[in-house]
């Protein structure tokens, strides 16, 4: 069977829309009959990535592809990039401003949560060019 692809463009302008892509993808995955646990892991990982797109990268793209008992998630942006990727993946590290923290975000658990909830995680970032995250959730 052919893979199923769901794609969302995430706007970096509007905080009120942050999280919409993950809610939609979560509901689509449920319709596909994917086990609840895998849907949860994928939804949380996408949510964290989506919030990062809004906070740090002025938007980007979220893609989820489902095939052969796995959900492959690809997050891309043309944002500022991450100068020190090793630092960014460590728990509690955050560059979020106070304003963002006041909204309840920026606890430095975004990328660590993505790593925790996915079976495979890969991040590539070039300062000045952008960031690409690839994650896989198996079921």
């Amino acid at each position: 069977m052919n893979p199923i692809l769901i794609r969302h463009d995430v706007s970096g302008e509007d905080f009120s829309l942050a999280g919409e892509a993950s809610v939609d993808i979560k509901n689509q995955l449920r319709k596909m009959g994917i086990p609840a646990d895998a849907v949860r892991k994928a939804a949380i990982s996408i949510y964290e990535a989506e919030i990062n797109l809004v906070i740090h990268a002025t938007g980007g793209t979220v893609e989820a592809e489902v095939e052969n008992n796995e959900i492959r998630i690809r997050i891309t942006d043309n944002g500022p990039g991450i100068p020190d990727v090793n630092l960014a993946v460590s728990e509690g590290f955050s560059t979020a401003t106070d304003e963002i923290r006041n909204l309840g975000f920026g606890a430095g658990m975004g990328i660590p949560n993505m790593i925790r909830y996915t079976d495979e995680f890969d991040i590539k970032s070039t300062p000045g060019e952008g960031t690409e995250i690839n994650m896989t959730v198996r079921f």
């Binding site: 199923i4 449920r30 596909m32 009959g33």
Partner: peptide, 23 residues
Amino acid sequence: DYNPAMELGDTMEESFERFTRLQ
């Protein structure tokens, strides 16, 4: 219990196939 009501089919295969047509 969880009473899933969103799945398109009774099995994952059926849901998946229906989802493809749905799109």
